Simulated assay, not measured.
Amino acid sequence: MAHTASGRSLPGFGLSLGLTLTYLSVIVLLPLSALVLKAGGATWTQYWQAVSDPRVVASLRLSLLASLAGAILNLVFGVLVAWVLVRYRFPGQKVVDAIVDLPFALPTAVAGIALTKIYMPEGWIGRFLPFKVAYTPLGVIVALAFIGLPFVVRTVQPVLEELDAQEEEAAACLGASRLQTLRHVVLPPLVPALLSGFTLAFARGLGEYGSVVFISGNLPFHTEIPPLLIISKLEQYDYLGATAIATELLFISFALLFVINRLQPKPRKGASHG
């Protein structure tokens, strides 16, 4: 008998679990399994030759470094945006809050075209810069920072909302400086959310295609990204090369997901008993 009164389980648990597993299998597990099986049909030598190709290594290096740089930028400015949205009230706040989610709603190809038009040498912003952004690795970083910002803001924002401002006031009354209050009162509860938001932004950037393909210029060994190489190899009917690169990205994504799960704070014992 289901313990619905205590809230430990819901009615129809078996049916709900079955539908959940079926949906996840059809939408997620089967396609990923097919990808791994396709790559598994190659010998280790063939697989290693595909992923160790200098062009593939250069594209993967660019994605890793650009994703890391974009995630670091979002870690800094995402926390600042979340802090302003939570701690201050100002005209147009709801508009700013909605803009944060714009990269989620905007098609990535549209974002890529818009960023390219803005940052190209004759663009609205690019014409005033003393250096090139579009068609360089810096343009890739800009695109990845754009699509990764909501992950940090929406991960950190709920934690900031739960922080008790009275603890900060008490620390100030006890003589703590603003830096000491930030370090010992505000920062510790934020660390898991900061790490999770950073990892999510990094993982999102690693497999990004639409917003990067236009602004990068797609120059081999310079601004070419792995998803573009995958499409290129598929057009050349090199299915082994395409699946090898895809599985390499898949393994990195799984490692990042494992890190995210390990960073999630564990519920304290007895918390459910009020």
Score class of each variant (00 low, 15 high):
residue 95 V to N: 08
residue 259 V to A: 14
residue 201 A to V: 09
residue 108 T to G: 04
residue 94 K to G: 13
residue 190 L to H: 02
residue 255 A to F: 11
residue 13 F to G: 11
residue 22 T to Y: 11
residue 104 F to T: 12
residue 116 T to C: 13
residue 238 D to E: 02
residue 262 R to P: 02
residue 60 L to I: 02
residue 80 L to V: 13
residue 6 S to W: 09
residue 273 H to I: 11
residue 163 L to R: 03
residue 9 S to N: 14
residue 27 I to H: 08
residue 26 V to C: 09
residue 192 P to Y: 05
residue 44 W to A: 14
residue 214 F to N: 08
residue 152 V to Q: 04
residue 262 R to M: 08
residue 24 L to P: 00
residue 112 G to R: 05
residue 246 A to P: 11
residue 39 A to L: 07
residue 172 A to W: 12
residue 259 V to Q: 08
residue 206 L to D: 00
residue 143 A to F: 03
residue 209 Y to W: 02
residue 245 I to F: 00
residue 124 W to C: 06
residue 145 A to W: 00
residue 261 N to T: 06
residue 58 A to M: 09
residue 208 E to Q: 08
residue 145 A to K: 00
residue 267 P to G: 06
residue 268 R to P: 00
residue 106 L to V: 11
residue 48 W to N: 13
residue 225 I to W: 02
residue 216 S to Q: 06
residue 246 A to D: 14
residue 260 I to D: 03
residue 111 A to V: 07
residue 247 T to E: 13
residue 149 L to G: 07
residue 175 G to K: 04
residue 188 P to Y: 03
residue 219 L to Q: 13
residue 58 A to W: 06
residue 117 K to D: 15
residue 92 G to A: 10
residue 235 E to K: 13
residue 94 K to R: 15
residue 89 R to H: 10
residue 248 E to K: 11
residue 157 Q to D: 11
residue 274 G to P: 00
residue 233 K to H: 08
residue 256 L to A: 14
residue 216 S to M: 09
residue 83 W to P: 01
residue 98 A to K: 01
residue 260 I to N: 10
residue 271 A to H: 08
residue 266 K to P: 03
residue 85 L to Q: 00
residue 101 D to W: 10
residue 6 S to P: 03
residue 56 V to T: 07
residue 77 F to L: 14
residue 200 L to S: 02
residue 187 L to H: 01
residue 242 A to N: 01
residue 131 F to C: 07
residue 261 N to S: 10
residue 116 T to H: 14
residue 156 V to H: 03
residue 123 G to C: 01
residue 220 P to V: 00
residue 42 A to D: 05
residue 273 H to W: 13
residue 193 A to H: 02
residue 182 L to H: 12
residue 142 V to D: 01
residue 125 I to Q: 07
residue 216 S to V: 04
residue 43 T to R: 03
residue 236 Q to G: 02
residue 265 P to H: 14
residue 159 V to W: 04
residue 273 H to E: 15
residue 57 V to M: 12
residue 82 A to C: 01
residue 128 F to G: 09
residue 216 S to C: 05
residue 244 A to L: 09
residue 82 A to T: 05
residue 143 A to T: 10
residue 41 G to E: 11
residue 13 F to L: 15
residue 44 W to E: 10
residue 222 H to E: 15
residue 136 T to A: 01
residue 133 V to D: 02
residue 15 L to W: 14
residue 127 R to F: 08
residue 91 P to M: 12
residue 221 F to D: 08
residue 224 E to H: 09
